[in-house]
Design a protein around this nucleic acid. Structure first.
Ligand SMILES: [Mn+2]
Ligand SMILES: [Mn+2]
Ligand SMILES: [Zn+2]
Ligand SMILES: [Zn+2]
Lengths: 142, 142
DNA sequence: TCCTTATTGAAAACAATTTTCATTTATCGG
DNA sequence: CCGATAAATGAAAATTGTTTTCAATAAGGA
């Protein structure tokens, strides 16, 4: 289970395992879409009603530092967190249900380097996201 | 001058031309980098000290509606506005001085379509930004 | 020049996030 | 198993960024 790996990693970093953290980790680790702090709060409260929103912020911050989650930027907002993929990947997001899927695409590196050269830049990072409609939503909204 | 074009466009939409608007438009139109509302406020005040921050927000909102500026997302924040390019373009941003340059790259559309297919998504938009170091900053920081 | 009404800036309201702090509790050493 | 200790918690306050409200101002058509 992904949440167990995350908890183990938190422990390895010297952090303590609390009920609050377990609840937050559980929620984020198994979510198919990026969640805002408030989303995480509301969902996690079902497992641990005493949870405070502050703790959600603090836990997300740590998970991000450990590269277990990443922030996702969308039109609707830029403070949603998603389980991070292994290695360098890019996102494909359904604009209806917000489901997020990772894909690789590193054939692009060369092209990006050339674009940089043309403008006398040294390119050392890139940011790529695709938006569309997923299979399930296609079925529903057609 | 780009700011004159923008003012003309505002006028065409029935908006009035005020000193406050002129100052904001001037600032944003000639900036080589994306500016936050506060940036715009501080820079514009030099030309029009009576300016209020509210007016900056309101003017940026209108410029965005008219597609004269676009919001730019970066690690440091997602509320910076930049003069928009003609047609569909992508951004190359210097992480040192924040200078932004547009480039075309629509050879990518096919690839993005294929990625979508592989995941049973219909892809209808994408978001691509490159980050690097521009010529000037390279010179300074090396 | 006058009239109408869009636009303005100050102040208040609101929302999201961070800080502060007294209390609780996870972990460690015995 | 205890405690002891320091990390972690949640409530409340503070801070920050943005929007709304509103009375005063001024742009632009007549
Ligand atoms: Mn890549
Ligand atoms: Mn494109
Ligand atoms: Zn963003
Ligand atoms: Zn969907």
């Amino acid at each position: 289970m992904k949440s167990d790996t995350w908890l183990k990693e938190l422990r390895k970093q010297g952090y303590r395992l609390t009920e609050a953290r377990r609840a937050v980790v559980e929620t984020v680790a198994q979510s198919p879409r990026a969640l805002s702090p408030t989303d995480v709060y509301n969902l996690s409260k079902e497992h641990y009603p005493a949870l405070g929103l502050v703790t959600v912020y603090r836990t997300l911050e740590k998970l991000e530092e450990l590269h277990l989650v990443q922030r996702v930027h969308q039109e609707e907002g830029c403070n949603a967190y998603l389980s991070e993929a292994e290695g360098h990947q890019h996102l494909l997001i359904c604009t209806e249900c917000k489901k997020a899927v990772y894909f690789e695409g590193d054939d692009l590196g060369d092209f990006f380097g050339k674009v940089g050269e043309m403008h006398n830049f040294v390119v050392n990072d890139h940011w790529l996201q695709l938006f569309g409609i997923c299979e399930d939503c296609k079925r529903i909204y057609d």
